[in-house]
């Protein structure tokens, strides 16, 4: 009885029908947050006394990096749930999370590089933070490739879930790399245990951008997952009913 809600969550059809109503709200929320955060951060937040305006790339760089890491956990945990409970939906979520994570990792690497040139004086340095982030990018690419490598969907789901779980060790390494080793990258600015070392006037737009990125991530993940549901369930009765109902309305 206690597990009933959990097993219902594993039904792709239930998930698809449930999330249909969320999509416009999630889209509106993420657009509103991203616009507010970007305009506030890029136009109204004060410049930094040392870096001037070049620090403003933080409003893209940090949220993208946050979601690249958090997205990996989402991918790996859905893979684990899929392995343990043999449910279809978690594997669909895992597959949908990989390209989004790869793109976010790429964005944080590129913005970091663009930021590095005017501040550090170099585009790239093989320090622990940057290198471990590059490994994360390759892990995401490996996930995408592994999904395509098998003819049986079951095999490719299981194999990529194992890869996601093994790669999970990289996430705390990325996060703590700047504290464990001497790196060129500075330590974390937003701290959870002590006061953040950024002025509140610069922090608020950054937090809005982070929340906006989370909302946008949720939106894109749901979109991808819903497409994956339709693709994998295309032979079922409820999908053909759904399609004929949509065609009738059109």
């Amino acid at each position: 009885m206690a597990w009933q809600w959990f097993h219902r969550l594993g039904s792709p059809r239930w998930f698809y029908e449930k999330t249909t109503a969320w999509m416009p709200w999630l889209a509106a929320l993420s657009i509103a947050l991203l616009l507010t955060g970007a305009v506030w951060g890029l136009a109204f937040a004060p410049a930094d006394f040392k870096q001037g305006n070049s620090y403003r790339i933080i409003y893209i760089h940090v949220p993208a990096a946050f979601l690249a890491l958090a997205g990996y956990y989402i991918m790996a945990i859905s893979g684990a749930v899929g392995l343990i409970w043999k449910m279809k939906l978690p594997f669909m979520v895992m597959k949908s999370a990989a390209p989004i994570g790869a793109l976010l990792t790429f964005v944080s690497l590129v913005t970091g590089s663009i930021w590095g040139k005017p501040t550090w004086g170099t585009w790239w340095e093989w320090d622990a933070r940057i290198t471990s982030m590059l490994i994360l990018f390759f892990l995401y690419l490996g996930m995408i490739a592994l999904q395509q490598a098998f003819t049986h969907r079951d095999t490719s789901d299981k194999a990529s879930a194992v890869l996601a779980l093994v790669g999970m060790v990289n996430i705390p390494i990325i996060y703590k790399s700047v504290d464990w080793w001497n790196t060129l990258h500075q330590p974390a600015t937003i701290k959870f245990t002590s006061k953040s070392t950024i002025d509140p006037s610069m922090l608020y737009p950054l937090l809005i951008m982070v929340i906006g990125f989370y909302a946008f991530y949720a939106l894109v993940l749901l979109l991808n997952t819903r497409v994956e549901i339709l693709r994998r369930e295309s032979r079922t009765q409820w999908v053909s009913d759904l399609i004929s109902a949509t065609n009738k309305r059109a």
């Binding site: 006394f49 040392k50 870096q51 170099t122 060129l184 500075q186 600015t189 070392t197 950024i198 002025d199």
Partner: peptide
């Protein structure tokens, strides 16, 4: 042969820094 600046994790508006 190369000198890089390692900036810190503090962000401050100019007025506050003054």
């Amino acid at each position: 042969s190369e000198v890089l600046a390692k900036h810190d994790e503090n962000y401050t508006p100019p007025e506050v820094a003054e």
